[in-house]
Design a binder for these strands. Structure first.
Length: 846
RNA sequence: GCGAGAGUGGCGGAACUGGCAGACGCGCGGGACUUAGGAUCCCGUGAGGAAACUCGUGGGGGUUCGACUCCCCCCUCUCGCACCA
């Protein structure tokens, strides 16, 4: 935070030397000791607890210091945990560490410190910070993905997928980060750059391990529909990422010899308009032609140039369409017409088959290409009304088929079916669904990750390590400097293995797993985190999962959440668990910005929580963090705002002390007041109504996680008592006790230490978190008089009060009799009087 | 280009299914208490106007007794995907 200068250069008076305006330090210590002794947030036997609630924050990567933006994430989860606890649930609230990953290894290279030590140090530091936020975690369940007792089971999961053919090794063009010297998953490439270091991503042809997530494309897409408590945004992102398109696979025979060329199209209805084919530069057929020397020189030069360009920058976008004829001719599967085959830069090898049929009349890209190279353009779709293809642009919409022989006159939809049927009859194609989703590349040529449990035997080939030999331990001693090959290659003892099949000498796989594998199953581990016979117990996970509330950043909207969904479905299909989705409710909180930017060390705008907590107390920082704005939205941090939260807690505490002084301690719950104790009218009655009105809104806000308005409601509760007191109200009144009681219990999830301290001060037994969740009294909300806003022609002119049970006729008369209303209706005819019960009267006068 | 979200005082933001726009807080102005105030408390605070009142939720239309809220068009910003056939 910023420090303002003082004339004498002394420290801010409230920082040191002066006692805090309310005793937050003692309360923090006392409350934490109480929660620990009472084991308030621990689950002993997961198989026994009833009324279960699994509240989970995404486990963090231990990168070092946390800032207030991270805090928002955990505080939110903590509020849910404490709220649910007060509502009588047994809440599973674990925390762990996503502890493998590149930064640890980079630190090792830069500072000559072992990744394990660096990681352990950061975990200790971050745990300290989490504790300083007063977060209620069951630390007995703490896990770290870099522990052998954990990654043993990550390796086990790999073996399960391997056995089912869902983990495979393949040579393919992969994303390569030249700086980190490792491959990247498609998901880790952002705008053609490495999402960790920002280097331009290049291409390499390498043998890599993949998980066959594409085998689950359809269920992953379908089940998005069931995730009704996920943010729409995240569901849409996953939907687009999976990218399902329906269309047809069509095979074009070649004139002369050679296998047919297969294309994918979403518009089989335009097949009669296909006038040429286009191949990607990397298409195998292009290579064959190149090798046999039959590719024309211009095309050969072009293909080499494009390939080189894409190796240097895999995600380079060639803006200008460019292509050359390959000299090959294909035959239209329905008409037999000859179609030239081109190679061009606008067709991607990664999608579909790497080949397209070009329909320049109805695809703008094909149109531009055809125009440039003088290729044939045929109109085959004409919209029902108006102009379709006009020679200046492709008509990409639907319509009626024309110039399409036997299918002329059909609609696009009918045409699709008819063309596909015709293709099937001729065995030249069929309906097909294509996904954008690629298989998940999980191997990394890096040290700090779970070793892939595989050995290579000269005689038996690739062999999985038997389950009984897990974990394959990560050796301590390796050479870290990046070479493009795994550092594990530098440890001979690790490399040497025995073939599990023939017992002969073999070598170990030296790649490690993507850390997203570690995090794709950790939520299953928390039920029995120390189990050493299995990764988890089916009974326990079936009982507690899906996670009731999952909380984290939207940056994981695709990667982590998609992978976790995939792994759960795989494990379900293998019978290891019985649910289909890991996370029932997802909450993605917004970022906290400073000076309009995301907090980062490089920008120097990081707000550290430690000094603020030291100066104002944990609860002040928690309250301000919640008050800053709607939790789902980004918000700008303002140090002055923290002081506002502090002032509120100070006023709250003063209220507690004033009440305590006036009324003394009572162990009985205030709600146990007999009905006759409540004042029937006057300031006490008003206070009680106001208290319950605010509380009713607050309860609703809390349920919906509208925590910024919940904080404002808490402030209003205190304001209510304060105003009552200022007006000379009696502090010993039961209405005050009730207000104080509600203000404390409703405060508890948000500012737990202060509420716990107040609970104690008021002389109540045990923890406030065992006091139950308040309810609003309907009787307290009742009004004797109903206030109506009276407007004339929609403009507010007056207020009237009528007996609550007054009928419409009475309200109408009273409204029309009002002086100001008469003034505005004078000389006009009353056309209509609209009465909204309990709210307003609108007089329509013309 | 496609998709999603957003636009309200000086600032962060309220206003659940259309019904008193600006809750709550920050900041600011004034006052009290003070050797002092950057502590605390009180009053005020959308704009214009002496007032009555008028105008105000990105812009323009519309529906309605009544629109921040619903419909149509447009502008701006943020995020995601992007030559995906």
């Amino acid at each position: 935070m910023s420090h303002t200068k003082h004339p004498e250069g002394t420290a801010a008076p409230s920082a040191e030397g002066r006692a805090p305006a309310y005793p937050f330090r003692e309360m923090e210590q006392r409350a934490r000791a109480l929660w620990r002794d009472e084991r308030l947030f621990e689950i002993d036997d997961p198989m026994k607890a009833d009324r279960r609630f699994y509240c989970l924050n995404m486990f963090p990567y231990p990168s070092g210091d946390l800032h207030v933006g991270h805090g928002r994430n955990y505080i939110l989860g903590d509020v849910v945990t404490r709220l649910k606890t007060m509502q009588g649930y047994h809440v599973l609230t674990p925390m762990g560490w996503d502890a493998f990953g590149l930064p640890a290894e980079n630190a090792a290279i830069a500072n000559n410190i072992h990744p394990a030590i660096w990681t352990r140090r950061n975990i200790a530091r971050m745990k300290e910070q989490l504790i300083s936020w007063g977060l209620a975690y069951d630390w007995r369940r703490e896990i770290a993905s870099c522990d052998p007792s954990y990654y043993r089971w990550t390796q086990w999961i790999f073996l399960q997928l391997y056995e089912k053919g869902l983990a495979y090794r393949a040579k393919s063009a992969v994303n390569w980060c030249p700086k980190d010297q490792t491959v990247l998953a498609n998901e880790q490439v952002v705008d053609g750059r490495c999402d960790r270091c920002g280097s331009e991503v290049t291409t390499r042809e390498l043998e890599q391990w993949f998980f066959k997530i594409t085998a689950y494309a359809e269920p992953l897409l379908q089940d998005l529909e069931t995730l009704t408590h996920w943010p729409e945004r995240v569901r849409v992102m996953q939907h687009n990422w999976i990218g399902r398109s329906e269309g047809a696979s069509i095979r074009f025979a070649l004139r002369g010899a050679g296998e047919p060329i297969e294309v994918f199209t979403t518009r089989p209805d335009t097949l009669y308009g296909a006038t040429f084919l286009v191949l990607a530069a990397e298409h195998p057929r292009v290579r064959e032609l190149e090798r046999s020397g039959s590719l024309p020189p211009a095309a050969t030069e072009f293909v080499a140039r494009i390939r080189q360009h894409r190796i240097e920058n895999r995600f380079a976008v060639e803006n200008e369409k460019e292509g050359y004829p390959t000299g090959v001719e294909a035959l239209h599967p329905l008409t037999g017409a000859p179609l030239p085959v081109w190679v061009a830069n606008y067709v991607l090898m990664e999608y579909g088959t790497g080949a397209i049929m070009a329909v320049p009349g109805h695809d703008q890209r094909d149109f531009e290409f055809a125009k440039k190279y003088g290729l044939n353009i045929v109109e085959v779709i004409r919209p029902e009304s108006g102009q379709g293809y006009d020679g200046t642009a492709a008509w990409e919409g639907d319509g009626r088929l024309v110039n399409s022989g036997p299918v002329d006159g059909k609609t696009s939809a009918e045409g699709k079916r008819a063309v596909i049927a015709d293709l099937e009859k001729r065995k030249a194609g069929e309906a097909r669904v294509q996904y954008r989703l690629r298989d998940w590349l999980i191997s990394r040529q890096r040290y700090w990750g779970a070793p892939i449990p595989i050995v290579r035997c000269p005689s038996c080939g690739i062999q999985p390590v038997p389950e009984s030999e897990l974990p394959v331990l990560l050796p301590d001693q390796v050479e870290f400097s990046p070479t493009g090959e795994s550092p594990l290659l530098t440890n001979q003892a690790f490399l040497k293995a025995t073939c599990p099949k023939c017992g002969g000498p073999a070598t170990r796989e030296t790649d490690t797993m993507d850390t997203f594998v570690d995090s794709s199953w950790y939520f299953l581990r928390f039920l029995n985190p120390h189990l050493d016979t299995a990764p988890f117990l089916k009974d326990a996970v079936d009982r507690w999962l899906p996670v009731d509330q999952y909380i984290g950043g939207v940056e994981h909207a695709i990667l982590h959440l998609l992978y976790s969904r995939f792994i759960v479905k795989v494990l379900r299909d293998m019978g290891y668990l019985s649910f289909s989705e890991p996370f029932a409710r997802l909450f993605t909180q917004g970022m906290i910005t400073k000076d309009g930017h995301k907090m980062s060390k490089s920008k120097g705008n990081v707000v550290a929580p430690d000094a603020l907590i030291e100066r104002f107390g944990t609860d002040t920082v928690r309250l301000y963090t919640l008050f800053i704005g709607p939790p789902a939205k980004d918000a700008e941090w303002n140090d002055r705002g923290v002081e506002g939260a502090y002032r509120y807690l100070t006023r709250y505490w003063k209220m507690i002390e004033d009440f305590h002084q006036a009324a003394g301690s009572r162990t009985a719950a205030s709600s146990a007041q007999p009905d006759t104790a409540w004042a029937a009218s006057g300031p006490r009655r008003d206070l009680r109504r106001r208290t319950h009105e605010i509380a009713a809104r607050l309860l609703d806000d809390m349920d919906r996680l509208h925590l910024n308005t919940a904080v404002s409601g808490l402030m209003q509760l205190v304001n209510g008592v304060q105003e009552y007191q200022a007006a000379g109200g009696d502090l010993k009144a039961p209405e005050v006790e009730e207000a104080v009681d509600l203000a404390t219990r409703l405060l508890a999830p948000l500012a737990p230490h202060t509420a716990e301290g107040a609970w104690n001060k008021l002389g109540r037994e045990g923890s406030v978190f065992r006091s139950g969740w308040p309810k609003v009294s309907e009787a307290a909300l009742k009004h004797d008089l109903a206030r109506y806003v009276v407007s004339v022609n929609g403009k507010v002119r007056s207020n009237i009060e009528v007996p609550a049970e007054a009928g419409q006729e009475v309200i109408r008369e009273r409204a029309l009799a009002d002086g100001n209303v008469r003034k505005h209706t004078e000389g006009k005819t009353i056309q209509q009087v609209i009465i909204v019960p309990g709210r307003l009267v609108n007089v329509v006068a013309r």
